[in-house]
């Protein structure tokens, strides 16, 4: 087993285990911490692909911004209680069955089609450095890039409006 494959296996084990722990831990704050670990291991996968730009952006956006939002929400609402009621047993059983079926069906579809995976030919052309990504982003995807800024602005305004306390209802 080569070193790269070993690294991949360890990273995948961390990713899957922390994803499961995110769902199964009782306290929301522990879930958030496990989710950070999951995101960091996904960033490790990106580094394994040598996609440095995406790895850094992934760390900044997910482990930075999104997790701060989650942690702030959990702490703001004082939700860190362990007395959450479980769903009824039938629902949990159905959730488990759906988990097994989804993964089995998707894996079986992939295995049964027997895709021909050709050898990975390396052209030697640089395709994922920041320079090339920036050129693709600002030439071909200029309009979506601008619309992304509009989307973020609208999301910001919407978040402020939604979470603002309404004066007429509260006292």
């Amino acid at each position: 087993m080569s070193t790269v494959l070993l690294i991949f296996c360890i990273l995948s084990a961390i990713t899957l285990a922390t994803a499961f722990l995110t769902i199964f831990t009782k306290q929301p704050i522990h879930s958030a911490i496990y989710l950070v670990l999951c995101f960091v291991s996904v960033a490790g996968h990106y580094l394994l692909f040598n996609a440095q730009f995406l790895a850094v952006v992934h760390i900044i956006v997910y482990s930075g911004a999104i997790m701060i939002l989650f942690l702030f929400t959990v702490m703001l609402m004082n939700l860190n209680k362990e007395d959450e009621v479980h769903k009824p047993r039938v629902t949990r059983l159905a959730a488990g069955i759906i988990f097994i079926l989804t993964s089995l069906v998707l894996l079986a579809v992939f295995i049964q089609t027997k895709p021909i995976v050709g050898p990975y030919d390396e052209t030697g052309v640089d395709y994922q450095s920041i320079k090339v990504l920036g050129q693709v982003l600002l030439n071909e995807y200029m309009v979506p890039f601008e619309f992304a800024s509009v989307l973020l602005l609208v999301a910001m305004i919407g978040a402020v409006l939604l979470s603002k306390r309404e004066k007429t209802e509260k006292n």
């Binding site: 996609a51 730009f53 995406l54 952006v57 992934h58 956006v61 997910y62 911004a65 999104i66 939002l69 989650f70 929400t73 703001l76 609402m77 390396e122 052209t123 052309v125 395709y127 994922q128 090339v132 990504l133 693709v136 982003l137 071909e140 995807y141 979506p144 890039f145 992304a148 989307l151 973020l152 609208v154 999301a155 910001m156 919407g158 978040a159 402020v160 409006l161 939604l162 979470s163």
Partner: peptide, 28 residues
């Protein structure tokens, strides 16, 4: 060996950030 997939992931991250902000505001 195509950069467009990574550009798409970049957009998907932007949408995810917006989605989480609005979603958590709704939760609050």
């Amino acid at each position: 060996q195509d950069a467009q997939g990574q550009v798409f992931v970049f957009f998907s991250m932007a949408v995810a950030a917006a989605e989480v902000a609005v979603g958590l505001a709704i939760v609050v």
